[in-house]
């Protein structure tokens, strides 16, 4: 399996787990039973326009291929296509990943050009690039709120662990090498946040 298809597979798996997992110990609802439709808001994926706006709001960057891929992401032109599609398709997952890699790369690079952290968007609470610095956890908390709307008050909150693992797993011993990897690790965190179900659905 190529790396590209590995990513697609992992993402689809992530979405499925995120949507059907039985977390409370009760029996999962049969989604095909019309009588079991809960009278609540149903979780759907972002529309094409919502996705584009979400990228802008969270990263400060615009995906360069919005116009090209808007129809593939389900945006109707009201001529050939009249219904907005919000299906989670392989195409959507693939393009969401493409978009995430582009805007995250640009966002992190732009942040590192800025002297003042006040003006930064992704690296708002980190001064340096040492992954072991305590500010990394504070910044991750900030990013999870910014991207997912999930507020954590404690840097030791276990929900930060997966994100902290991206920053700190298998770090090289050499300080300089660690810091040079940090740029890519922050980009990976950003990509992971965007391709996460908590970002792509609501």
């Amino acid at each position: 399996m190529t790396p590209k298809w590995t990513i697609v597979g992992v993402l689809i798996g992530g979405l499925l787990v995120g949507c059907t997992g039985d977390l409370n110990g009760s029996e999962p609802r049969n989604p095909n039973d019309p009588n079991a439709t809960p009278e609540t808001k149903r979780i759907v994926r972002l529309s094409a326009d919502q996705f584009f706006r979400s990228l802008e709001v969270t990263t400060g960057q615009t995906w360069s291929r919005e116009d090209q891929y808007a129809p593939t992401l389900g945006k109707p032109d009201f001529d050939q296509a009249t219904q907005e599609s919000q299906d989670i398709s392989v195409s959507f997952v693939k393009l969401a990943g493409d978009a995430a890699r582009e805007v995250c790369g640009e966002a992190v690079d732009a942040d590192l050009e800025m002297v003042s952290t006040d003006d930064r968007i992704i690296l708002k609470h980190v001064d340096g690039l040492d992954p072991e610095d305590d500010s990394v956890l504070t910044n991750l908390r900030y990013l999870v709120l910014r991207f997912h709307g999930i507020h954590m008050t404690d840097d030791l909150d276990s929900r930060l662990d997966p994100w902290a693992a991206i920053m700190r797993t298998d770090l090289p011993a050499d300080q300089g090498e660690r810091e040079s990897q940090a740029r890519d690790r922050w980009k990976a965190v950003c990509v992971g946040l965007i391709t996460h179900p908590d970002f792509l659905t609501y």
Partner: peptide, 21 residues
Amino acid sequence: IAIAALTVLPLASLAQSPEQC
């Protein structure tokens, strides 16, 4: 690194947003 990140996504999903499921 991205693949590594994505591998932990299901775990992150479970950990962060049980209300979605």
